[in-house]
Design a protein around this nucleic acid. Structure first.
Lengths: 193, 193
DNA sequence: CGCAAACTCCTAACTATGTTAGGAGAACCT
DNA sequence: AGGTTCTCCTAACATAGTTAGGAGTTTGCG
């Protein structure tokens, strides 16, 4: 009766309710009407379940990132759209955020296949940013830092609220003003001694 | 032979080596020359050990934050000092960062006494920021988001390196330009419909 | 069809975990 | 000196992930 997809869906529910690290194979098995060892017909180990969840989350990220891309010539509008997508994607599911973006499960790291999905997302993000005039790698890093910072604070200190989400537009305007001013007056930093 | 302090120190070593969530009472006991149940003479539970570590980490944060405060009239210099302290404090110890700033251990949350230390730190931080001209709560939130974003990216994607640490000055200048420009031309946002 | 391989699910059991029970011996305090 | 408390032990328990091994069903192919 239970398929891989059903098990993963049940795992998401459990993880959203009790926390990512609190996933229990016994509870998971019962919730799909199985005995615990029967899960091993579908997955090699608990970490293999995490890996399947990781792959699914990364794919959602990739799909939704593409869907969130707006067709506009205004870099600021595009940047805001990207940042909104990112922060709200993270805020929508703490457990998914922890799984994808934090390394919190002791023995777990994504398989190469799953990790590749994440890397593809990152590559597309870099392309999007470049199209907005953000091509300096340092500015890409700064931009991702702003995004993760907003997401992290939102999840840590106001889960379910919008205390940091409502700062997104302001933050992006700040960042955009910064990179455009840099183009005008470059080489402000002094040479190393 | 072993005291509370020795046990906590050994716990930090184990946690730094194997990850925060991988702390094992058996390994911990052996590393201080005890049998596992003997730890219960010093701590009520594993989470009680985490709590003691949390308190110690929060105290370190408070102390080092005070030490990092520079006596200067220049808000930008002061802001840079604060941000440098914060990001480098986080980057210095992943496990400590996870314990203090992320909620990753399933059943753990800090005791009121331990949490108070964190709140005191935050209150002092707010005072410091206010002295730099950052008094709007939204701008305080934006500032902390930038700090945690830099720290989070540094730890997640370049642990031990300086890929985001070296962006700190630039990020603070960006933020400072943002808040000063807001003072000059306020009320840029249009009224809600 | 017939038969073997593969799949799905089970019970029983192994190892490791945090934790409790209960007791022996040392240290401390009137 | 005598009782209390502290420190540490062994034995044991519940729960976790996992493995072994075997039923019953499904599937693939001659």
């Amino acid at each position: 009766m239970a398929t891989r997809a059903e098990i993963i869906e049940a795992a998401w529910e459990q993880v959203r309710a009790s926390g990512l690290a609190a996933l229990s194979l016994r509870d998971l098995a019962r919730s799909v009407g199985m005995q615990p060892p029967s899960l091993y017909s579908y997955f090699d180990s608990k970490n293999d379940i995490y890996d399947a969840m990781y792959a699914q989350g990364a794919q959602q990220f990739l799909d939704e990132q593409r869907a969130a891309t707006v067709a506009t010539d205004d870099p600021l509008t595009a940047l805001k759209a990207i940042t909104h997508f990112f922060v709200e994607f993270c805020a929508a599911d703490v457990a998914r955020y922890q799984l994808l973006f934090q390394r919190t499960i002791p023995g777990f790291e994504p398989s190469p296949a799953s990790f590749k999905i994440s890397q593809d997302s990152l590559a597309e993000l870099a392309t999007l940013l470049a199209r907005c005039g953000v091509s300096d790698p340092a500015m890409v890093d700064l931009c991702t830092a702003i995004g993760t910072g907003l997401a992290d604070q939102q999840l840590s200190n106001d889960p379910g609220g919008d205390r940091w989400i409502r700062l997104i537009d302001d933050a992006v305007e700040m960042f955009y003003a910064h990179i455009t001013s840099k183009v005008d007056k470059p080489k402000r930093r002094r040479r190393a001694r």
